[in-house]
Simulated assay, not measured.
Amino acid sequence: MKPRAVWNPRDLLSAGVIVLTFFLLWELGVRLLDMPVYLLPAPSRVILTLFQNTSLYAQATALTLGEALVGLVLGLSAGFLLASVLVLRPGLEGGVMTLAILVKSTPMVAIAPLLTLWMGFGVLPKIVITALMTFFPVLVNILTGLQRTDPALLDLFRAWHASRWETFIFLRLPSSLPYLFAALKISAPLALIGAVVAEWTGASGGLGRTMWLAYTNLNLPYLFAAIFILAAVGMFLYQFLAWLEARAVFWQVPRQD
């Protein structure tokens, strides 16, 4: 079965029209209301700022994206390993999930300054914050996917006298792939947010640092330029994961006419 395209021409045209209309209305509203640039810059002013400071934003984006991706990989690995342990040892689920919810309920804005104080102003605290933000969605989604295996297939594996590990590897893991990609599509944008929030608490570079400096100086074109980049990178990551899902889990991804 050939996997469907994530975007067809109709989707691309519709998305382009919606986005273009939004920015045109924004531009028109700013000009008609004569909005001061320190309150809301026009999109044209923001794009001009991006082109005038390409090197600055390229370096900041590379740093923030690197922190986000490393943190995402760590959060994914921890969530996947812990979910696997909970499936193989169900008696641990109550205590472990309680601890995981406690970590999730703790505001990252409160943890980030502490990690910066303990680990310094390098990339390490940013990676840890990103991993903490992405860990819980991955854990919950993968655990759900591993547990929601077709009962008929489980009975079939039991009839074949498959071991717990064989059932886990050849049945539960493939069945959990849609949940894994759902977790990734949620966690990838969260990873960017985590990296930016961590950079606000203290960093020598990155988009978070750029946004903080722009905010303190009321330089909103610089601030919105960083926001535009984060939005674009987030959309790219989401679409890349959707494209990957369409090929890895093609039997469960519905076709679009």
Rank of each mutant, 00 (worst) to 15 (best):
M1V: 10
W7Y: 14
N8E: 08
R10M: 12
R10Y: 12
R10V: 10
D11G: 12
L13T: 12
S14T: 15
A15D: 09
T21I: 13
F22P: 03
L24F: 14
L28W: 12
G29C: 04
V30E: 14
V30A: 15
D34S: 11
D34C: 07
M35I: 09
V37W: 00
V37M: 05
Y38G: 04
L39T: 14
L39E: 07
L40A: 10
P43D: 12
S44Y: 04
R45E: 08
I47C: 04
Q52V: 06
L65G: 03
V70G: 08
V73Y: 01
G75E: 00
L76E: 10
A78P: 06
G79N: 02
G79R: 04
G79S: 06
F80P: 01
S84E: 02
V87M: 03
E93Q: 13
V96Q: 00
L99P: 06
I101G: 03
L102K: 02
L102T: 04
V103E: 09
K104P: 00
P107Q: 06
A110E: 05
I111N: 09
P113R: 08
L114G: 06
L115H: 05
T116C: 13
L117H: 00
M119G: 07
M119C: 09
F121E: 00
P125E: 05
I127F: 05
V128S: 02
L132I: 04
M133C: 08
T134W: 00
F136V: 03
F136L: 07
V138C: 14
L139P: 02
T144N: 14
G145W: 08
L146Y: 13
L146Q: 14
Q147G: 11
R148F: 04
P151K: 13
D155G: 03
L156C: 05
L156G: 01
S163V: 00
S163Y: 03
S163D: 00
E166L: 05
E166N: 08
E166P: 01
T167C: 07
F168T: 06
L171C: 05
P174N: 01
S175F: 11
P178R: 09
P178E: 01
L180Y: 03
L180F: 04
F181D: 02
F181Q: 06
A182T: 11
A183F: 02
A183E: 01
L184V: 04
K185H: 06
K185V: 06
S187G: 08
A188M: 03
P189N: 07
P189C: 08
L192T: 10
L192Y: 05
I193A: 11
A195M: 07
A195G: 13
V197H: 05
T201V: 13
G202M: 07
G208A: 01
M211F: 00
W212T: 04
P221V: 07
I229W: 02
A232N: 09
V233T: 13
F236E: 12
Y238L: 14
Y238Q: 15
Y238I: 09
F240A: 15
R247K: 15
V249P: 02
V249Q: 01
Q252D: 07
V253D: 03
R255D: 12
R255W: 08
Q256T: 07
